[in-house]
Design a protein around this nucleic acid. Sequence first.
DNA 1: CTCTATAAAATCGTATAGGATATAGGATTG
DNA 2: CAATCCTATATCCTATACGATTTTATAGAG
Lengths: 233, 233
Amino acid sequence: MQAMNLPSVDEANLAGGRIQRSSSLVEDVYEAIFAQLMSLKIAPGSRITVDSLVKEFNVSHTPIREALGRLEGEGLVLKTHLIGYRAAPQITKRRFDELYELRLLLEPHGAAKAAALMDEAKLAQLQESAGVMARREGKDERLRYSNFARQDAIFHDKVMEFANNELVRETLAHQHTHFHIFRLMFHSRVTEEALDEHEAILAAFAAADPAAAEQAMRRHIEHSRDRLLLAFD
Amino acid sequence: MQAMNLPSVDEANLAGGRIQRSSSLVEDVYEAIFAQLMSLKIAPGSRITVDSLVKEFNVSHTPIREALGRLEGEGLVLKTHLIGYRAAPQITKRRFDELYELRLLLEPHGAAKAAALMDEAKLAQLQESAGVMARREGKDERLRYSNFARQDAIFHDKVMEFANNELVRETLAHQHTHFHIFRLMFHSRVTEEALDEHEAILAAFAAADPAAAEQAMRRHIEHSRDRLLLAFD
DNA sequence: CTCTATAAAATCGTATAGGATATAGGATTG
DNA sequence: CAATCCTATATCCTATACGATTTTATAGAG
């Protein structure tokens, strides 16, 4: 095990372009742990000891505990007194159902609102993030799925951005972190269907047709649910 | 300023009735800060220095920082590097509108589901938590409002509990913490209307009529929104 | 094999020190 | 008088060492 590279301050400032307050160690550690959770380098349910992170990151206990506290507040890690931290467990079937019920309540409605407010510029952004172009990219199944998952997340987030309700958008984004981990665990097969469904949604957006957008989004989410439901067999 | 009393371990165990792992200091500190935020003892937007909490609670930096990290993850406090923590700012008009849009998307639907699954026992619980009984309790305006707010929160949470979607329930509960603070800031007037509306919802539940429950809940939330909207003048 | 007792390891919290930065107030300069 | 600079203090941020408590692993007894 070797010390990892936390992104440097200068790097972060240069990348962003604008001047921003240097990030604290807590922030860097938070990002690092978050990335490990999202990439499954830390598996769901597995233990996370402060000491091992001390060695890995070469920082003291203090910022690590603070970062872990934040992750706990976000529900990504759990803590048991005198036992320690562990990654949140894998999603259950019940939870999965609840998540899709939530999505169906929020996203079709958001799609309708976005369609009503659609314009050229927004449509272009959506088309770009729909991932339709990237369809044939890469042959590595694993990598292809990872790309698809990211594209899909961006697309849905963009729709909600244009739906003009930041709170709902944040709510879904928050749930997405859990959903993302689940998806990576069961990345059985990427169907092309999802991209077709994205195109259907885009068509409704292009026509600025709220009812059609709502319907297309609902179908897409229902199909997505049914595709992933196989993971519970 | 005097050292405060954190709830003791034994106290917590006795209160809960069941045996539970002794709570850590982090947990106690978290609860204490949370309570101060919810009671406005720490005002929205005001600074929260670690050192002052060290003196107030008589504990070291470590558990305080971890607890503050957790509160940050929950969005109740914000942190700026080298500046420190501060309580989340008061809700904006925009955010208020978004919150009610979210509630209208989730709660009427939840009420319909709850009505479809209604039975005697649940109905009794709802009637108790509707707060209709407590209508005439207390003359102190301030106290009365505080009681009403708590009752209202419990009632809505119970409905969502019976709606059988824990994820949605948690989502609303999470938002409620922010909402609660807002409400306390502008506790202008408690109208009896809200309690009447609760009764209308209860009637729909008693009839196990999903459509009526959904409708009654929608009207209640819309009215609640309109009543609180006055705070933005 | 099961249960218990001891030992080792880990967690939790405290105390403390030092470096870096922000903020306020006063001094200096134009 | 105004603007700028400078200094002092407060606060944040991190590292480190230590002790107390509890868990966990190990080994021995029945």
